[in-house]
Structure formats: C-alpha cells, structure tokens
Amino acid sequence: MSFLLEFVRDPLTVGAITPSGAALARVATAAVPRTGSPVVVELGPGTGAFTEAIQRRLAGRGLHIAVEVNPRFAQHLGALHPGVDVVTADATDLAAVLARRGISQADVVVSGLPWAAFAEHRQRDVLRAVVAALPPHGVFTTFAYLHSRWLPPARRLLTSLRARFDEVVVSRTEWANVPPALVYYCRRPVTEAP
C-alpha cells in the first residue's frame, strides 16, 4: 500500500505524503484509557499508525471503530487489524456509524484527518459530528503539523476547537515525526458551539 500514491490520487483526503510516525502515534493516543471497556473511534486511520497504538493501549478491551473514507486504506487496515471494526465512511457520518452498532457515543475520538486540507465548512461539519458523538467526559485528540500551524486553515481549526471544547491542551512538539507535529487534547465538549 503506497501512502504517496494515495496522496497523489486524492490529496484532500490523504493530506500527507508519509504516514504519521510512532512517536506522534503514542502522543495522539495517550487519551485512550488503559482500563475499563472504552469505545474508541479513530477518524482517518490511513495505513494504521494510530491504529496500532490504540490497539496496544486497549490490549483486547473495549471497542475500536476506525472510520476511513479511502476504500483502499480501509481494506488494507481491515486485513492488518482484524480486531478493529473498520468502516468505509465519511467522518461526518459518525452518528450513523455508531447507531448501526447500537452505540450513541464514544469515550475517545482520535483523529488523523488532514484538517489543513479542509475548507471551513468541512472542518465545521466534522467537528460537529465529533462533538455530537462525545459524552461530557469524552476526549478528542487530533494533530497539526508544526510548519502549517500558522496557516489560516490550522488557525481556524484551533479557534474551532476552543469554541467546541471547554479545555484544549497543546502537546509539546514531536520532532521525531516527519514533519514535526503537535497534538491537541480536547476535553469537555460544548454542545451549543457554532
């Protein structure tokens, strides 16, 4: 499975020329509980860098649903991780994905989506779906590349996160990732946000 080829085919849904590294995956999935039986949703898993880290943290517990819009990535991911419920769907359809499984909310949503490639309305629609899927104790994590953090789409994302969550904590920079990136930990969703 060529990540670069998928980027060339559809750069607005793949968003990067290489998958995220192990160091970024560890930081982005740190909110996944190591106890209990949580429902964890992964948005935009791509080739599975975060998927592996989530599976290690869950250690056979809970439910891990991976929502991937790219059917080639979804098929590849499902073959690599048979214990993960891989769904070919758009992140905005998160409520329907959960409802088909008899679930109304997820404890944690981990995103590998290419936010900087999204138009304003697309960012808004995906964030609405995420907030609607989280209970008051829910956590949402996503990341941003350091080099694009000051570009308008990335600034818009951070502003939107702060409007939709009571707490947004920014991790230290993961210099080992190519390119360097940081993670946003978003807690206590605000359902009345625009």
Rank of each mutant, 00 (worst) to 15 (best):
M1R: 11
S2A: 03
F3M: 08
L5K: 15
V8H: 09
R9A: 10
L12C: 04
A16M: 08
T18L: 08
G21W: 02
A23T: 02
A23H: 10
L24A: 01
R26P: 02
R26S: 10
V27W: 00
A28I: 02
T29P: 11
A30P: 07
A30F: 01
V39G: 09
V39S: 10
V41G: 10
G44P: 09
P45L: 05
G46N: 07
T47H: 03
T47C: 04
G48Q: 06
G48H: 05
F50R: 11
F50K: 12
E52S: 13
R57N: 08
A59P: 07
G60A: 12
L63P: 04
L63D: 10
H64Q: 14
H64G: 13
I65R: 12
A66I: 07
V67T: 09
E68H: 10
V69E: 13
N70W: 07
N70H: 14
P71R: 14
P71E: 12
R72H: 14
F73R: 11
L77Q: 09
G78W: 01
A79N: 08
G83Y: 04
V86G: 09
V87Y: 03
A89N: 13
D93I: 03
D93Q: 15
A96E: 15
L98I: 04
A99D: 15
R101A: 06
R101H: 07
R101Q: 08
G102E: 06
G102C: 07
I103S: 06
D107M: 13
V108K: 10
V109A: 06
V109R: 09
V110M: 06
V110H: 04
V110Q: 04
A117Q: 10
F118W: 05
H121F: 09
H121N: 13
Q123V: 06
R124T: 12
D125H: 14
D125A: 15
V126N: 05
A129G: 11
V130W: 01
A132G: 14
P136V: 00
G138C: 08
V139H: 06
S148H: 05
L151K: 12
L158Y: 03
T159M: 04
L161S: 04
L161N: 03
R162I: 00
R162W: 00
R162V: 00
R162H: 06
D166E: 15
D166F: 03
E167P: 03
S171R: 08
L182W: 02
Y185C: 08
C186L: 02
E192P: 05
P194E: 14
